[in-house]
Design a protein around this nucleic acid. Structure first.
Lengths: 214, 214
DNA sequence: CTATTATCTGACCGGCTGGTCAGTTTTTGT
DNA sequence: ACAAAAACTGACCAGCCGGTCAGATAATAG
């Protein structure tokens, strides 16, 4: 009486304690391997070896590599979203929201740099393999979703007069690019002062967005 | 009397007309395949098929896949650098230099989006496979090189009083991130107005860098 | 025209990939 | 205690990867 919902992602309906634990363990080790070797270098053999289990176990608990990657993506994506938007949505003005958005993004990636790297790696890989029926839609939608949330903050700021006139989409793309690039550097040089980075980033985009004073 | 310098990259010493043509052809098709399928999906078989030649021809003219990728990287990287810095270095003030830097970057990627995508794909892949003796150093150095040039422009602006006080490195990383992310979007949605993107980007970072007026 | 060299083909190789499965061990239920 | 279900192992598979090579073909030189 095993595989009930395997492919039915999301809600963990009737899973054993052991199964739940194994899945979590595998996902965690998968993240480590992806962060270390990139998506292409994250083979099932390597993930299994890292977890100290047989390769077959992964196939037993997941419907293949794609399913595992999808799990990694959705798990840490939602984890990040919750962390960030719990704080962002608590802000009243768009200015505060944007500032909090930048700050919590940096803060989150300082605590979980591997998670972010893994998510980015998967999304990029999924984008590249477009048309080969992988996790396509989801991955592209993640980018778009993240972007549209940011766009709505920016638009709100423009409507309230806090922000100047600019293309919210270009601004959002630039902000995401800045954040993701800084994430790469935090991973490469872990000994940097994250708080300073957050200050710099907020100072930068506060000036880039606010109404011209003159 | 064939392979003379094969591995000795760079200067094409004594190459046949045919060899030179074939190499160029292979590199061009390699770029197309990388841009379309990503680095991981750019197999020798696919590149050969696209070029309408046998797989062995690639091995005949290049010392393996790494050599081909290295060729793609160096060729289009230098091409881009020349295009951009020919204009950037002609500017007198740091403000003009930065503005030209942003504008020509967008302009270049509008003309050669595939080249840029290919370079980014290779650099990312090389970064991931770090420690596995590929083109490691070079790829990381490209990023660092690109970054240090930008940093020097920013530092110059700060010394001349054009720019406010900020961490030039963080700013440079953010600018690169914004440019590269926009590149991805231009590739995804080719029907956007590139000129507008350039205007938005310059407006954004002009405000982010300039001395506060008050 | 002929011999030599350069170029190219297509079959082939070992190695690694994701994935499968018969059989063994562990956990669970009674 | 014991049977059934769950969890796991390790050997195995086909398929693709980068790369090689003997032999076919094309270009060139004498």
């Amino acid at each position: 009486m095993n595989n009930r919902t395997k492919e039915g992602m999301g809600t963990h309906s009737g899973r054993t304690f052991i199964e739940e634990a194994r899945r979590r363990q595998i996902v965690q080790h998968a993240v480590d391997v992806i962060a270390e070797h990139g998506f292409a270098g994250a083979t099932l053999a390597r993930i299994a070896e890292r977890a100290g289990i047989s390769k077959g176990v992964i196939s037993y608990h997941f419907d293949g590599k794609d399913d595992l990657m999808y799990e990694v993506l959705t798990l840490y994506e939602s984890e990040e979203q919750e962390f960030i938007y719990a704080r962002v949505d608590a802000q009243e003005t768009a200015t505060d929201a944007l500032q909090m958005y930048l700050r919590t993004n940096i803060e989150y990636m300082a605590v979980h740099p591997k998670h972010l790297k893994a998510v980015v790696e998967i999304v990029i890989a999924a984008k590249d393999s477009k048309g080969k029926r992988k996790f396509d839609v989801t991955s592209v939608e993640w980018m778009e979703d993240e972007l549209s949330r940011l766009v709505s903050i920016l638009t709100r700021g423009q409507e309230s007069g806090e922000f100047r006139t600019f293309d919210p989409r270009v601004m959002a793309i630039s902000i995401r690019g800045a954040i993701e690039n800084i994430a790469m550097y935090i991973l490469t040089y872990p000994d940097i002062n994250v708080s300073d980075y957050a200050d710099e980033l907020t100072g930068m985009f506060m000036r880039a967005t606010r109404e011209d004073s003159g």
